[in-house]
Amino acid sequence: MSIWEYANPAKFMRTTDKVLPWLVVSATICVLGGIVWGFLTPDDYRQGSTVKIMFLHVPAALMAINIWVMMLVTSLVWIIRRHHVSALAAKAAAPIGAVMTLIALITGAIWGQPMWGTWWEWDPRLTSFLILFLFYVGYIALWSAIEDPDSAADLTGVVCLVGSVFALLSRYAVLFWNQGLHQGASLSVQSGERMSAVYRYPLYLSMIGFALLFLALVVIRTRTEIRKRRLAALQAQEARA
């Protein structure tokens, strides 16, 4: 039993068939729980009720980055071991990542308007997220532009690799260009000062919820891609026969 068994599309479909309902249920519970709990938290003495936005903004931003990392890993698996499910999972994850980035950007802008007095500031974190969004858009556009599925997987894989290096590079280049307005990490293990438990636990729940939601969606979308691929293969077979 090794993880590579799931590279077999049939095995992947069978397993996810069983896992998916649980995933959907737990994702729904955690996301709704996290958001509702977050909505019911008391007002912050400085931020007022806008602190509630954090329960959307922070998990979305967290997922935006982690989804790109997941795409990088699955692209590498495709390039090195050539498992089709891996490439399809990367394809399936990209739109979710783009939406997460968009949510992080928009909720940030809505929050920034009353708090910083501006919708948008060319702050390193904000700018990096905009750049990340551009990378997602380019990646998705490339997938949809190439007809041959294997070439598309290869080329998007290479672009994802190069893009990862440049996304990281831009992150630090931007830091050089403008010092920030954005607060530092709100959940840090080392720092002595921590967010009060009133906010911390709903935030954890919301983060878990977003992660589960991503997993559920990526499984559904990967299954879609596998089915599309199977249909195309069957049709090609008949055309030849």
């Binding site: 958001i35 909505f39 007002d43 007022g48 009720s49 806008t50 509630k52 936005i53 959307l56 903004h57 979305a60 739109p95 979710i96 939406v99 968009l102 949510i103 928009i106 909720t107 809505i110 929050w111 308007q113 009353p114 939601l213 969606l217």
Partner: peptide, 23 residues
Amino acid sequence: LGRYTGTVLAAYGVSVVLLAGLI
């Protein structure tokens, strides 16, 4: 929600719409 009613509701509204669309 005090004086930030519009802000908070807008943020939740946009996020829910985007997530619902994605799902």
